[in-house]
Each structure stands twice: as structure tokens, then as C-alpha cells.
Deep mutational scan, measured.
Amino acid sequence: SISSRVKSKRIQLGLNQAELAQKVGTTQQSIEQLENGKTKRPRFLPELASALGVSVDWLLN
């Protein structure tokens, strides 16, 4: 799922939720909701993929 991929990649990069949120241009709460499965397809998906160094396709599939 996107939530597990985001969380595992974030941890692999040594980032906390607030640091990832800053790179993406969103809030820590938005990252938390995404990782908890409350958000399925965030509006900041391209920025998120870029910050994590992955493709949008990788996040979604």
C-alpha cells in the first residue's frame, strides 16, 4: 500500500514525518494521515515521490 511504502522509504532515508513534510511542502499531520492509511491519494503525490527519490508509479503499485 502507499502508506507502507511511504513509511518504509521515509525511515530508510532517516527522515521523520516533519522532515519529510517540509521537503514535500505539506504538514506533518498530512504525512501522518497518509502513513496511517487515512489518505489514499494525496494531492502532493508528485512532490512526495520526488522527496523520497521514487516514482509516482512505485508509490501507487
Rank of each mutant, 00 (worst) to 15 (best):
G37C: 06
F44A: 03
I31L: 08
K38M: 14
L52C: 01
S8I: 12
V24L: 08
P46C: 10
L52N: 00
V56A: 07
L60A: 08
Q28M: 12
I31R: 01
A21Q: 01
P42T: 07
R5G: 03
S8C: 15
V56L: 14
Q22C: 10
Q29F: 12
L34E: 01
S30W: 15
G14W: 03
G53F: 06
R43V: 14
S3D: 06
I11W: 06
S50A: 15
L20N: 01
T26Y: 04
Q22V: 12
A49D: 00
K40A: 13
D57V: 09
Q33K: 13
G37P: 02
L45F: 06
D57I: 10
F44P: 02
R41P: 07
L13I: 08
W58A: 03
T27K: 07
G53M: 08
L60E: 08
K38T: 15
I31P: 02
L48G: 00
V6Q: 01
A18D: 11
Q29I: 12
G14F: 04
N16Q: 08
R43D: 15
Q29V: 11
W58S: 04
S30R: 12
S3M: 08
S8G: 10
G53P: 00
V24P: 00
L15Q: 03
L59E: 00
S4V: 13
S8T: 12
R10M: 04
G25V: 03
Q29D: 12
I11Y: 07
L59M: 04
R10E: 00
S55F: 04
R5I: 08
S50K: 15
A49K: 00
E35G: 01
Q33I: 08
T27G: 05
V56P: 08
W58R: 02
G53N: 10
L48A: 01
Q17C: 10
K9V: 10
L52R: 00
L52I: 02
N61I: 09
L15W: 14
S30T: 10
I11R: 09
V6C: 08
E35H: 01
I2D: 02
Q28L: 15
S55R: 07
N16A: 09
D57G: 11
S3F: 06
K38S: 13
E32W: 11
Q22A: 15
L60D: 07
S55N: 07
T27N: 09
S55G: 07
N16D: 11
S1V: 12
L48N: 00
I11H: 09
V6I: 09
G53I: 04
R43L: 15
L13K: 06
S55A: 08
E47L: 10
Q22N: 11
E35D: 01
R10K: 00
E35P: 01
L48V: 06
L60H: 06
G14N: 07
L45D: 01
L52F: 05
E47Y: 07
G14Q: 07
L15D: 02
G53R: 09
E35L: 03
L60V: 12
S30Q: 15
A51S: 06
T39I: 15
I31E: 01
Q33A: 15
G25N: 08
Q12F: 09
S8M: 15
E32H: 10
P42C: 13
V54S: 03
T26M: 07
K38R: 12
S4P: 04
K23D: 02
